[in-house]
Computed example of a mutant assay.
Amino acid sequence: MTQPTPSPALVSAFAPTGTLRASINLGNPILANKDVATGEPQGVSIDLAREFGRRLGVSVELVVFEKAAASVDAVKNEKADIGFFAIDPARSEGLRFTAPYVLIEGSYLVRDASELTDNAQIDREGHRISVGAGSAYDLFLTREIGQAEIVRLQGAAPALAALRSGQVEVAAGIRQLLEAEALREPGVRVLPGRFMVIQQAMGTPASRGAEAQALLAAFVEEMKATGFVADALRRHRIEGAVVAPTA
């Protein structure tokens, strides 16, 4: 069922400038990327942002970033009103999250010549794992890795390049990205399975209040239940992600 029209106070809480500023992370191609023809952002997160703006009755401004950490900071610092992030305890301060709307696998990439064949072999002394600094998998591995070294680089592309150049033994990332890298040029392969499930949710500054969080949470649940998220994934031809269960 469609949620009732938000009160003027709630609209003001979400869009104090009169425009809903949506923080968009282009570093996660499952959620957002650029249209090849127009160069404009497109994807599931953009569709959700525009639909939420329509519900509020305000225009939507896309505030675009290349990396997740910068996208998160924009919302925390109230340079944006909503954002699309992986849920992680390290990001909880200053943000209010919804339940996830999409689940994405985090996996490992190794060189073809590597003796590594299983995720359980990764956390060993002498292994170096490249990650995009501040990404969901960086935050997760920072907590979970005890023996291997994490090499933090500025984005997914440098992390993948570090593997090919021999700077590291393993690259961690979104499974879809790693599979695309393996297809792009021979020499690397994705290990079977996953080391984590990335829960992609919507978030808003904590200062907007519990009522705003509840409205955003209800919106996400409706978008899952009505098939909006599933339709967006199909429309944008996204593989490697599934709609999260309703809360």
Rank of each mutant, 00 (worst) to 15 (best):
E40K: 15
E40C: 09
Q42W: 15
G43H: 09
V44R: 07
V44A: 06
V44W: 02
V44K: 01
S45P: 07
S45T: 13
I46P: 10
I46L: 14
L48Y: 12
L48K: 06
A49R: 13
R50M: 13
R50T: 13
R50C: 01
E51Q: 13
E51K: 02
F52P: 04
G53Y: 02
G53W: 02
R54P: 15
R54Q: 15
R55D: 14
L56C: 09
G57F: 02
G57T: 01
V58G: 10
V58I: 08
S59V: 12
V60G: 13
V60H: 12
E61R: 14
E61L: 02
L62E: 11
L62C: 05
L62V: 05
V63M: 09
V63T: 11
V64H: 08
F65N: 11
E66T: 13
E66R: 05
K67A: 05
A68F: 00
A68S: 13
A69Y: 08
A69N: 13
A69M: 13
A70N: 09
A70M: 09
S71I: 00
S71M: 04
D73Q: 13
A74I: 05
A74P: 03
V75H: 04
V75S: 11
K76V: 02
K79D: 13
K79R: 14
D81R: 01
D81V: 01
I82T: 00
G83N: 11
G83M: 06
G83W: 05
F84N: 04
F84H: 11
F85Y: 01
F85T: 08
A86Y: 00
I87K: 06
I87Y: 02
I87V: 06
D88E: 11
D88K: 01
A90G: 03
R91K: 11
R91W: 00
R91T: 13
S92F: 00
S92T: 15
S92Y: 08
S92K: 06
S92P: 07
S92G: 12
E93R: 15
G94I: 02
R96W: 05
R96A: 08
F97G: 01
T98C: 09
T98L: 04
A99I: 07
P100Y: 01
P100T: 06
Y101L: 06
